[in-house]
């Protein structure tokens, strides 16, 4: 389609390169590593032993993995041109509100749709492995999203631009310079449209990506609800979660 008047083709290519490079440099696992590990699946016995763990132990493990992954998303954000020029308040707001959504997009790289397993702590795990968490609905929602995202078969460029567009959301509450964020998001969005167009993808693909946003938001809300409930039942364990996890998802 037509480019916005303040966005030349050269701009678009520069933005695309920057965002894709930032994404590839800050992925915890490369596509090759994940491919190698794809068939490294937890055995039924191993799955059973996870299921028999305490809720506290399992929540602690997941909080640790999410915290580790968040640091990579922070690094991704820092490398997106323009992000560090935003005021500190807005950088924090965008990361607090968007880092889990970006993680959910990235997670589909670690999802194997042929056996409905997700890479977790060294091997690929089925949803049942997470039974001890006591939030099957959240776990199933995450697997469902990963399944539907993986069906879109996003390439690295599309995933990078989609992640950046989701992160640079101007409608996050308490933003002080939302217009600046909107400008950044618009450019990334145009770059994404351009990338899809150049790859011969039809407009439906972008619509399908955008249609996942409500699902992602509801998973993020469900996660906070489950965490609040867990914190009521196991306050000491919740307090021992990594400080960054508490900072990002604390009320």
């Amino acid at each position: 389609g037509s480019l916005p008047d303040n966005c030349s083709l050269h701009d678009i290519e520069r933005i695309t390169q920057n965002v894709v490079k930032s994404h590839l440099e800050t992925c915890q696992y490369s596509s090759e590593e994940l491919k190698k590990l794809t068939w490294n699946v937890y055995t039924p016995e191993e799955t059973r032993s996870f299921q028999l763990k305490s809720a506290e132990w399992m929540w602690q493990q997941c909080a640790l993995h999410i915290t580790n992954a968040i640091q990579y998303v922070v690094e991704f954000a820092k490398r997106i041109s323009g992000f560090m020029e935003l005021c500190q308040n807005d950088q924090i707001i965008l990361l607090k509100a968007g880092c889990l959504e970006v993680l959910l997009i990235r997670m589909c790289r670690a999802y194997n749709s042929s056996n409905n397993t997700m890479f977790f702590d060294g091997k690929f795990a089925s949803p049942q492995l997470f039974k001890a968490l006591g939030c099957d609905d959240l776990v199933n929602a995450v697997f469902e999203l990963a399944k539907s995202l993986s069906r879109l078969q996003l390439n690295d460029e599309e995933m990078a631009l989609f992640s950046a567009a989701v992160l640079l959301a101007p409608d996050r509450p308490w933003l002080t310079e939302s217009q600046q964020v909107q400008k950044l998001q618009e450019k990334v969005y145009v770059a994404l449209q351009h990338s899809l167009h150049m790859n011969g993808a039809n407009t439906e693909k972008l619509d399908k990506m955008v249609s996942k946003l409500p699902q992602m938001k509801s998973i993020c809300n469900l996660h906070v609800d489950k965490l609040e409930f867990f914190r009521l039942v196991h306050p000491e364990t919740a307090y021992s979660f990594p400080p960054l996890y508490r900072e990002v998802f604390g009320s």
């Binding site: 640091q71 690094e75 950088q91 900072e247």
Partner: peptide, 20 residues
């Protein structure tokens, strides 16, 4: 700032899990 001191620190420091 106090409430988000770790995020602030991550945003400020140049070393990152990726470099480590």
């Amino acid at each position: 700032k106090e409430k988000h001191k770790i995020l602030h620190r991550l945003l400020q420091n140049s070393s990152s899990p990726v470099d480590l």
